[in-house]
């Protein structure tokens, strides 16, 4: 299992994350952390005229799983409606990460960026 976590694709996203930084101005702006492991993410997103996600950026600190998931998510979310994002779950994140099966202990690392996006969309009034 863990061997999968450290394959080239994920390590590459960890070392060279996509869309690293802060969008200004942004429609969604949220910070979230996993206090038990110290993973921390600041995620910003902009919506287009139809309310779909146009761009996402993140910055933060954490393990390979949390940072690679965030990096991949910034690419995967573009074009999605907030309701579509809200329907995404662990299986979608695992598939996005190349089909890894995450152990119990790593699920919350992988889900941090998606949970932050959902919370950010709710806070911005874009989700019921």
């Amino acid at each position: 299992m863990s061997h999968d976590l450290y394959r080239e694709q994920l390590l590459d996203h960890y070392h060279n994350p996509a869309n690293y930084g802060v969008l200004e101005p942004a429609d969604v702006d949220i910070e979230m952390d996993n206090p038990t492991c110290g993973d921390r993410i600041h995620l910003t997103a902009r919506l287009d005229s139809e309310g779909h996600i146009a761009a996402v950026m993140f910055e933060g600190q954490g393990c390979v799983v949390s940072m690679a998931a965030a990096s991949m998510l910034t690419e995967a979310l573009v074009g999605k409606a907030p309701e579509e994002v809200n329907r995404m779950g662990l299986e979608d994140v695992e598939e996005m990460m190349g089909g890894v099966k995450l152990s119990m202990g790593r699920v919350k690392c992988a889900m941090l960026s998606l949970n932050a996006t959902k919370q950010g969309l709710r806070d911005a009034g874009k989700l019921a």
Binding site: S2, T36, C37, V65, C109
Partner: peptide, 27 residues
Amino acid sequence: HPHDIASVLDEEGICVRAGHHCAQPIH
């Protein structure tokens, strides 16, 4: 990150704790 250390070590059959070990203030 300590989580990654623990995961790589797990691959080698080695069990270590990673996190704040129920002692956040000392971290």
